[in-house]
C-alpha cells in the first residue's frame, strides 16, 4: 500500500495543526477513510487519528440534551442504557448500521462527518435538530447537521477543523421519530432510500413535523414541502399531500443500483409507512 504518515495527536491544538497541512486526512473509526485508501480512491500524505484527543469518547446524556463525543462508536451508543432510554429510536437505527465489526469502529459523528450521499443516521439527526460543535484554527463554532450535510464529504469543514461532538437538543414532550429504510439486502447493506419523520404526536395529530430523506436529493435532506403538508396535523388527506410533495421535491439520482424513478416511488412508500408508524404510537 502507498505509505502515509500516521499521526495520533493527544491534544486538540496539535490535531488542528496537523490537519491544516495539505494532504492530511482525519480518521476516527477509519471505516470510511481506510476503506477508500484500500480501494485506491484516496492517497493521503498523512492520516491524523483523532481517537486519542481529550473527551472524544464522552457520551453525556441528560434531559437537557445529549452530547455524543466524536469518538463514541455506534456500538457504544447502542449499548449505553442512558442513551437508549432517551432516544430509543436513534439507538435502534444505529443498531442496524452495517455489521457488528463495523459498528465497533465506526462512530455516530463519523456517520455524519464523512458526508455520504447515503447514511442511516443523518436523516434521523436532521429531524431531531442535531448540531455539530466544530473546533479549528479559528476557534469553535456550531452548525446544524442539516447545514453540514448540504455538501458531500467534509466540504463543510475548513482546513484544520474537527467535529468535536454532536449535540441533540432536549427531547420535546410527545416527540416521536419513525424511520423507514429500504435496502436491497436484509443484512449489511446501505439503504437505497430512507425516510425519517419526527413529530410531536398528540391525540389531535402531528405537530412540529420534520421530514428528512436519503436518496431524494444528492445528499440527505429535510423536505420542507412535505413538512408543510403535514403542518395541519396529519389527517388522511394531508398524508397523501405529503407523499406527493415529497415525490415532487425529490430529484433522486439514477445509478446502477436503481433508477431515480424507483427511488422517488420508494420515498412515497416509506413516508406513508413512517407516518403510519407514528400514528400508531
Amino acid at each position: 500500500m502507498f505509505p502515509f504518515h500516521y499521526h495520533r495527536p493527544t491534544a486538540w491544538p496539535d490535531a488542528i495543526q496537523l490537519l491544516s497541512r495539505p494532504g492530511a486526512v482525519a480518521k476516527m473509526g477509519g471505516c470510511d477513510v481506510l476503506t477508500k485508501y484500500r480501494r485506491g480512491q484516496i492517497r493521503p500524505e498523512s492520516v491524523v487519528a483523532l481517537h486519542l484527543l481529550p473527551a472524544v469518547g464522552e457520551l453525556r446524556t441528560s434531559p437537557a440534551g445529549v452530547q455524543i463525543g466524536a469518538g463514541v462508536s455506534l456500538r457504544q451508543l447502542v449499548a449505553a442504557p442512558s442513551f437508549r432510554e432517551l432516544w430509543p429510536e436513534i439507538a435502534a437505527v444505529a443498531a442496524q448500521v452495517a455489521s457488528p465489526a463495523i459498528r465497533s469502529a465506526a462512530t455516530a459523528v463519523g456517520n455524519v462527518a464523512q458526508g455520504w450521499e447515503v447514511s442511516d443516521l443523518v436523516p434521523v439527526f436532521q429531524v431531531c435538530g442535531a448540531e455539530l460543535d466544530v473546533v479549528g484554527p479559528g476557534g469553535e463554532r456550531s452548525l446544524t447537521v442539516d447545514d453540514y450535510a448540504r455538501q458531500p464529504g467534509t466540504g463543510a469543514l475548513n482546513p484544520g477543523e474537527i467535529i468535536a461532538r454532536l449535540r441533540l437538543p432536549a427531547r420535546q414532550q410527545g416527540f416521536r421519530i419513525a424511520y423507514q429504510r429500504f435496502a436491497l439486502r436484509d443484512g449489511f447493506d446501505l439503504p437505497l432510500v430512507s425516510v425519517a419523520v419526527g413529530a410531536v404526536v398528540t391525540a389531535q395529530g402531528f405537530a412540529d413535523v420534520r421530514v428528512a430523506a436519503v436518496g431524494g436529493q444528492d445528499m440527505p435532506s429535510r423536505c420542507e414541502a412535505a413538512e408543510a403538508a403535514l403542518a395541519g396535523g396529519g389527517d388522511a388527506a394531508s398524508l397523501a399531500q405529503a407523499a406527493s410533495a415529497l415525490a415532487a421535491w425529490a430529484k433522486p439520482p439514477s445509478d446502477f443500483r436503481a433508477s431515480g424513478e424507483y427511488r422517488r416511488h420508494l420515498l412515497g412508500v416509506l413516508l406513508s409507512r413512517a407516518l403510519g408508524t407514528l400514528r400508531a404510537q
Binding site: 481506510l34 476503506t35 484500500r38 492520516v47 463495523i102 469502529a105
Partner: peptide, 27 residues
Amino acid sequence: CESASCGACTVLVDDVPRLACITPAAD
C-alpha cells in the same frame, strides 16, 4: 476484500470485533 466488506479478517480487539483490514496496527 481488503475494504471492510467481507468479514474474513475479523479479530477481537479488547473483546470487540474489528476488521483487521482497516485497522492501523499502531492503534
